[in-house]
Write a protein that binds this DNA or RNA. Structure first.
Lengths: 219, 219
DNA sequence: TCCATGCTGGAATGATCGCTACAATAAAGT
DNA sequence: ACTTTATTGTAGCGATCATTCCAGCATGGA
């Protein structure tokens, strides 16, 4: 990086001794695995240390504290989640709403297969409400409500006849359904694994859309 | 058990010194509150002790260990849950399936209002999968799969034209939808609280039923 | 060569964890 | 009255918790 005169402002990223960034990733990998298995309290620094191979002090060099570490896990896993889910609304403007809903369902179940950690850990955090709310939980909720607003916007394009309230109901319903399908995959007890059942997924959403449309017409 | 020849099977309940049973209940109350706020690892004996007013030794007198305590919490909250949900399938044989589904949705949202701890704690446990599976989690899954089989049986009465596989899909879907609605109530972020929206709830289920029926007809 | 920087190693902090041992108390059965 | 049984209280066990301190590296720039 022997920086020529214009690199002082770190246009070139640090990249000093490449070791640091790599270990940060490894620590995040370990923390993601453990946190999504055992939840917030169950993720101890010593477990993360053992799993990642780095001593506790390294973890504290890269992250302020446990809360910060788990927030970083959420943040990173959200990126890969977002990556696999956001090729949803592109250049399919000529499709019917039915096709779009089916496509959306397939897309979601694919995202779950690729990056389950995000939703799993996020839902675990969301279900807790201890008096002092960890920032990791707040971060998940923020990210989640962003997805919600995205869904509202997307539905608006296809269903201009619905009012704001109805669109929000539909988007909330979509999110709830996704959560439910995810849980059915995660627990895997007697109840079948619904993930990948785009027919059920979209039949439900289309049923709700029909209902909202009729309500809108009769108003 | 020496006592009179017919009491050996504990027809007469213990009732010795009433204190014990009462404190057991108080301990369970405290544990239920804390566990549903903070999850399995977050429920420490000293917190339960502080909340209930009993010393740790009393807790360990009533329960074998932490795992046993939390299992007991699940067991007890499941009773009140079951109580409020099982008046579902009685003497409504002459109703249409639409009415039955709406009724079922209303019943569920009522059960949540009355006893949210059961599902909340249960889902938190279900989402974790630490290597050593606590018995509390196993208990929740057992209880849950019982509900699933109940739903299959109930649907069979109304939808004799569906085969076993389709009925199970429908029941799984119903459970998943209920989970999703519950979560939407618990997180209470931007997304609306769907609990109590029997119209959305039943529109979705009816949409799925329609789809399954058509599939059955065309087969 | 020397120094500054980025990062790791190991040991130690006090607090809290789940759990136990055991004496104290109070009522129940005799 | 005496013994038994059910429960509570006190104190403490070793283990693990989150976090910190600081000495050791290796490397890159000077």
């Amino acid at each position: 990086m022997s920086d020529s005169f214009l690199s002082t402002v770190s246009v070139t990223p640090p990249k000093k001794r490449s070791n640091g960034i790599a270990s940060r990733e490894k620590i995040l990998d370990a923390a993601a695995k453990i946190a999504s298995e055992r939840g917030y309290e169950g993720t101890s620094i010593s477990l993360v240390s053992k799993q990642s191979g780095f001593p506790a002090s390294s973890i504290y060099w890269h992250f302020e504290n446990k809360d910060d570490l788990i927030s970083a896990v959420i943040e990173r896993s959200f990126s890969s989640w977002l990556e696999s889910i956001t090729n949803m609304g592109k250049e399919d403007d000529d499709r019917s709403i039915e096709d779009m809903v089916v496509h959306q369902a397939a897309n979601f179940s694919n995202a779950i297969q690729v990056a389950p950690d995000f939703l799993r850990l996020g839902l675990m955090l969301a279900l807790e409400h201890r008096p002092e709310d960890p920032t990791a939980r707040k971060m998940f909720l923020k990210v989640r409500s962003r997805s919600f607003r995205g869904a509202v916007k997307n539905y608006k394009k296809w269903l201009p006849e619905l009012d704001k309230r109805a669109l929000e109901e539909l988007a909330s319903f979509t999110v709830a359904l996704a959560d439910g399908f995810f849980i059915s995959q995660q627990v895997a007890d007697d109840t079948l694994d619904l993930m990948g059942r785009e027919d059920l997924h979209s039949a439900a959403i289309l049923g709700v859309i029909d209902m909202l449309r009729q309500k809108a017409k009769s108003a």
